[in-house]
Design a protein around this nucleic acid. Structure first.
Lengths: 205, 205
DNA sequence: AGTTATACAGAACGATCGTTCGTTCGGTAT
DNA sequence: ATACCGAACGAACGATCGTTCTGTATAACT
């Protein structure tokens, strides 16, 4: 017997909390993690403020859960598909395509969630800063490892620092997504994709 | 006679309002343009909320004035010094150095102001969105014109689209500044500078 | 000197913020 | 059948939000 199992239907509970978090991810991708309001979110979910926040404890815990869910959504949309490609340069190429694709498909209604969160907390200390920084660092580490494998396979110039490659890919995707969305430049994602491919020595095609 | 001149000492009035705006720029570069609070700002300036907001009319007008001042500060720090270099590639090179330099020097205590504002308003319509978009578009236009001159001088590959170059430079600076600040990567600005130089065909040095 | 306009303080407005209660209700275990 | 847990509610808390109004002191102009 599982002594610490939830007494109530586990599926229902998880669904309720998970759907709240997913709605909050969409809202926060537009308004920012700091722009979330318990009242507004509760209104959209047709539940009471106290009922909503009771699931998390306090607002900060909710924000952290929302961030974690957004990272998960990004991983599902970008990393998981790309990880099916062969390690090294092919996988980096697939990452670029999935990355651009998830921006084009509107996986986050307000643009790249992690970028929004990065800007919100890059100059403000606290647990959320640390969470965002940890997520970005981990992603950069993944990219760097892949770039290193590509270099070892001879698919990148030997002088090219894998950490530089990772950082450049991230900067391009992050900055390009914001600028394109802001100015309404329809070609922005194409420009970004071409620049990212250039960064890993691939033809623009 | 100047019929519509301010009745009060024009210099004093301008100073008072200007210093409020400058303080607000510093605050907003950390907390965001949306994170500014009339109460907080008034407290820092040791004046009343009503006295402060009376200078602008309402909060949105104040935010627009703050944004305009931040753009001016960026122009002073980045464009004006670089514009002394010869048009084309030399000027682009100077822009890169001034751009990185203003980030390194902490011209904005919370990182690049326009990037913060871009993220805040890239998914939210309104006058502030339009102001930010206009500022970014103008800056991209300046970069593009310079890239075009560089290409005409034969300092850039003929196949390279000047708009692509401008967009890539902006993406790198914007995204790199945020990621570096967030993760505390001391080498981030160097990486960004190297990537920006690569984007205009210059050696990393 | 008298008049006028302005800058600012102070107080108050309704709204909303995040949080904390006490209560109710449905489901599970004993 | 009883006890209990957890989810969710409605109501209220003090704090703060942006805004408005009123009074006043001061500077500028006649």
């Amino acid at each position: 017997m599982l002594a610490d199992m939830p007494r109530r239907s586990a599926a229902d509970v998880a669904d309720s909390r998970a759907s709240a978090v997913e709605a909050a991810v969409d809202l926060a991708s537009v308004e920012g993690l700091e722009g979330i309001t318990i009242g507004r979110l509760a209104g959209e979910l047709a539940m009471s403020k106290s009922g909503l926040i009771g699931r998390f404890g306090d607002k900060e815990a909710m924000q952290r859960a929302v961030l974690a869910a957004a990272v998960e959504r990004f991983t599902d949309a970008v990393w998981r598909p790309a990880a099916r490609s062969a390690p090294g340069l092919p996988r980096l190429e697939a990452v670029v395509d999935a990355w651009i694709g998830h921006l084009r498909d509107g996986v986050f209604p307000g643009g790249c969630f992690v970028t929004t969160a990065s800007v919100e907390y890059d100059a403000r200390p606290g647990p959320l800063h640390d969470d965002v920084a940890e997520a970005v660092s981990r992603w950069l580490g993944v990219l760097e490892a892949e770039a290193r494998r590509a270099r070892e396979a001879g698919d990148l110039p030997p002088g090219r620092d894998p950490a530089d490659v990772a950082f450049e890919l991230h900067s391009l995707a992050s900055g390009g997504s914001v600028a394109g969305r802001l100015t309404g430049d329809a070609a922005a994602l194409d420009r970004t994709r071409a620049a990212m491919r250039r960064a890993i020595g691939l033809p623009a095609g």
